[in-house]
Amino acid sequence: MGVMRMGYAHVRVTDLAEAKDHYANTMGLYETHAEGNKVYYKAWDEWDHHSVVLEEGGVGLVKFGWKVEKSSDIDDIEKKAQAFGVTVERMSKGENPEIGDGIRFTTPSEHVFEVYHEATLVGTEVGTHNPDAFPRHLVGVGVPALDHSLITAEDPGLMDRFLTAVFDFYPTERVQTSLDSDADIIATWMTSNNQIHQLAVLAGPQGKLHHFAFRLGDWVEVGRAADLFSMDDVPIDIGPTRHGITRGQTVYFFDPSGNRNEVFAGGYLAYRDRPMSVWTPEQLGKGVFYHARELNDAFTSVLT
C-alpha cells in the first residue's frame, strides 16, 4: 500500500530546554533518545522508536519521515519521484537514529521528505498482551500519537499532483477558487488511507510549516488539552473549535519556539471512492474555523 503514515516530524526549536518541557511535560511525549542538539520522542500509543525530533537552532521544519509498508515501496517511490522531475538521494540506516535505509528528496514545495521502511520497534506503552486502554500515569495532555501536518507551498495544485503521483495519496477535501474544473487549488487535504488527512498543503510561501498535529480521542480530550495549555501558559492560537474541513475538533497552539502545534480529534473516515468535498473562498472561514466562521489573520500569515 505504499505510504502508511507520517512517521516523524523533525522540527527546529530555539531553546531546547523549554521545548523539552513543552513536548514532554505538557504534551506528554516520551523521550527515547538524545544526542548532540537533538532529542527524540514517541507518544504512548506509537510503537516505532520516535515520531517527533527536536533540533536546537532556529524554528520551522527540518523534514518529515514517511513510513512505507514494504521495502520495495521505497524503490517504487524513488522511481515515481524521479519521473516527476525530483532529485532523489539514498539515505542509509543510522543517518537517523533507529531508522533504516531509505530515500530523501526535496518536494516541489521545498520541504524535505524521507521515506523509510524500518524503524526500531519500541512498542506502545500498553504493550500487545492483554493491553489496557491507556497508560495509568500519563503526563499532561498525554497525546497518543502524531497525526498530520499542514505545510505551505506557492502552488498547492502542484503538490496535490506530486503527492498523487509519487505517494499515491488522494485528496479528501480541497479549497478551490470555484467549482469549475479549471479552478485554482488554494489548499488540499491528502491521505493514503482512511485517515482524513496525513498532509495538507495551503497556498503560501515555499518550505514553511503551518502546524503539525497530535491525535486525541474526542471533544472532552480536546477541551482538557486547552485547560492544560492555560495551566502551562501555552499560547492558544484558536479553539477549542471544529474545522468544517475534515470535521475535526481542534486547538491550535504554539510551542515555546513559536512552531504551531495542534491537537486534533475526530474527522470522518476517508475512502478513495468517496466524492471529494470542495470549499469555495466565500465559505473558507467556516471551513477552517467552523464556529467563529472567520479566518483570523494568523491562519495565513503565522508560519515557521
Binding site: T14, F254, P256, S257, G258, V302, T304
Partner: peptide, 10 residues
C-alpha cells in the same frame, strides 16, 4: 500578533 514566542515575526 501570532505565536507570541518569537517564531513567526508577525
Amino acid at each position: 500578533v501570532g505565536c507570541r514566542r518569537g517564531g513567526c515575526g508577525i
